[in-house]
Amino acid sequence: MTRAEQIADILRGRIATGRLGPGDAVPSTRAIMRDHNVAMATASRVLVLLQDDGLIESTPGRGSVVRAADGVGSAVLTRDRVIATAMSIADAEGLGAVSMRRLASTLDIPTMALYRYVPSREELELAMLDSVMGEVDLRPQTGDWRVDLHGSCMAMWRSMVAHPWFAGALSMTRPASMPNAMPLAERMLGCLHAAGLDPVQAFTDYLCLLNLIRGLGSTLEPELADRAETGLDNDEWMDARVGELRRIAPESTHPNMARIMEVGYPYDVDVLLESGLRRFLDGIQTRLV
């Protein structure tokens, strides 16, 4: 990276974080020379790079200023709108479809203009995850720990169903800092404490429940993609392959598999979740009796 590119990155960061907003003057060539101890050619190159990015423009009498986003007034395009648009793309096509270039194209702004609202692709994804957590609809508590805990789990599940990419993007081993995740965590832990669990066991069961929900949620996006590609839902796909399953698991050696193939299994991820939650909560309740 050249010295001009390094300085341009510093100024991009100021624009991305809002320290320099639309219409604000950016450092002049002389100011860049003085502040960064570089030659005039290097300082001039810095401004050219920012102009090429669509981040600044020359204004008579003012020099170079931060440019407002093309096609969208600065009062209209906000960070929230950028994040919401990214989520819409992910909901329709998967998280992998959300690139900075694709997002900028959808918003009809230069790609580099996005960095005024989100400094990086990584921060965009984190903001999307936090936004989904902010949609988790926690209902008023009833005072019954089991009812309230079940309701909290189902609230998170509804958000996963609404955003199929969400579960796969969550890390349970190295979780990101998401302010909007805290109300759900506090509610679930409070329910587990109300059930009589100590702080360590409560947090253990909290993580187990999250992993149960996330694990089933991570099947949503791949299933939608497979359905779009094959035109078959899960049951239709399995029906087309039951003959192959019988071949590799004949009744003579796999009688238990043969039983379920005989009666058929109506796959439903909501049924799996409800069954898993019920049995998990039964286990907590039984232990407390």
Score class of each variant (00 low, 15 high):
residue 164 P to S: 08
residue 140 P to R: 00
residue 251 E to I: 11
residue 165 W to G: 04
residue 54 G to P: 07
residue 172 M to D: 13
residue 117 Y to A: 05
residue 223 E to Y: 06
residue 161 V to D: 03
residue 54 G to F: 01
residue 258 A to P: 09
residue 1 M to F: 08
residue 37 N to S: 11
residue 282 D to G: 06
residue 194 A to R: 15
residue 266 P to Y: 08
residue 207 L to D: 08
residue 108 D to G: 00
residue 62 R to H: 09
residue 127 A to P: 08
residue 195 A to Q: 11
residue 265 Y to K: 09
residue 128 M to N: 04
residue 90 A to I: 04
residue 42 T to L: 06
residue 47 L to A: 09
residue 95 L to E: 05
residue 207 L to S: 12
residue 93 E to G: 01
residue 235 D to I: 14
residue 22 P to N: 06
residue 117 Y to S: 07
residue 97 A to M: 04
residue 263 V to F: 10
residue 181 A to N: 03
residue 258 A to G: 08
residue 186 E to H: 10
residue 261 M to E: 13
residue 59 T to K: 11
residue 207 L to W: 09
residue 258 A to I: 03
residue 198 D to H: 14
residue 82 V to D: 03
residue 262 E to V: 04
residue 9 D to A: 15
residue 9 D to Y: 01
residue 25 A to L: 02
residue 251 E to W: 00
residue 224 L to R: 15
residue 45 R to H: 12
residue 171 S to Y: 06
residue 203 F to Q: 15
residue 258 A to H: 13
residue 207 L to K: 01
residue 190 G to F: 01
residue 115 Y to K: 06
residue 189 L to R: 10
residue 93 E to A: 13
residue 164 P to L: 07
residue 149 L to V: 05
residue 86 A to R: 02
residue 216 L to G: 04
residue 5 E to W: 02
residue 250 P to H: 13
residue 182 M to R: 12
residue 3 R to N: 10
residue 250 P to T: 10
residue 128 M to Q: 09
residue 50 L to H: 05
residue 87 M to V: 03
residue 176 A to W: 02
residue 274 E to I: 03
residue 263 V to R: 15
residue 209 L to K: 03
residue 7 I to T: 07
residue 175 P to W: 04
residue 32 I to G: 00
residue 3 R to K: 15
residue 192 L to V: 12
residue 259 R to C: 05
residue 98 V to S: 07
residue 71 G to E: 02
residue 168 G to N: 11
residue 138 L to I: 07
residue 203 F to C: 13
residue 7 I to F: 06
residue 248 I to A: 11
residue 59 T to L: 14
residue 283 G to Q: 10
residue 151 G to W: 00
residue 36 H to D: 00
residue 138 L to W: 04
residue 81 R to H: 08
residue 72 V to T: 00
residue 285 Q to W: 11
residue 251 E to Y: 00
residue 154 M to N: 00
residue 58 S to Q: 12
residue 136 V to Y: 02
residue 154 M to I: 13
residue 163 H to G: 01
residue 87 M to L: 12
residue 220 L to I: 14
residue 263 V to M: 13
residue 167 A to E: 03
residue 177 S to N: 12
residue 196 G to H: 13
residue 279 R to W: 08
residue 273 L to H: 04
residue 60 P to A: 12
residue 176 A to P: 00
residue 83 I to C: 01
residue 28 S to M: 01
